[in-house]
Amino acid sequence: MFNIVHKEMLSSNIVLFDVEAPLVAKNALPGQFLIVRADERGERIPLTICDNDPVKGTVTLVIQTVGAETQRMADKLNEGDCFADIAGPLGNPSELTDMDEEELKSKKILFIAGGLGTAPVYAQLKWLAGKGVMADCIQGARTKDILILVDEMKAVCGNLYLATDDGSEGIHGNVTTALQKLWDEGKRYDLCIVIGPMIMMKFACILTKELGIRTIVSMNTIMVDGTGMCGACRLLVDGKVRFACVDGPEFDGHLVDFDSALQRARLYATQEGRLLLKYREGESHHGGCGVCKD
């Protein structure tokens, strides 16, 4: 069992947990992820790692309540409770971790963080800051209230450019609008690392390809075991079948087939929607609409 030592709501639908998982905390590197299960009947959920403290033996998880399972985690798990399972760190560390400090310092790196993607981007920026490298970052969200970890982000990056779709904070527009703006102002980068919703990564990659910036994305596919067994996380990269859990999760964004990945991400959408409805409405939902027979 994995104890929750701290819980914090970052916005109305995003929650942060610090959880005791000493081996994971000791070995986690930026770019890696976890599989988490709330309790004995729970689903295995892949989550990115926002932070890890090898001394305290804790990892920081940030969860957005997108389905019944994540909603349940946010509602039911509190400080002093436990996650039944935390398995990781999974996936390959970021290619940045293979570079020496000199190489890192020679690169102009731009991160693009969309929504919840801010959490894993923070892990990478913090790791770089520890090496004395302050990369730039565009952090985007729909609106001001769901821009998360802004102070923490500021502390570990060079320039932090905020962008909101509704213009309530920072640049008015999405992350690609912001990138185009920076480019037009004469900013240049050698490497772009984009983490966020798949649709955002797709459009960011279309722009960075035009601009000729090498781009890495982190693919948040459907997963079950996360260790290289089930094959649920498969996607096409450069026309070949790849598995996000053991070949990724980071891939060359210009080679990822986003359209088929976006399509596969919808696989359980209907079932997830029904489960969420059932969870939210509980006994009051009797399926009178005729859509949900269960």
Partner: peptide, 9 residues
Amino acid sequence: TDCIIGRTM
């Protein structure tokens, strides 16, 4: 359980 040799250790 929950320990992936090659990753966790």
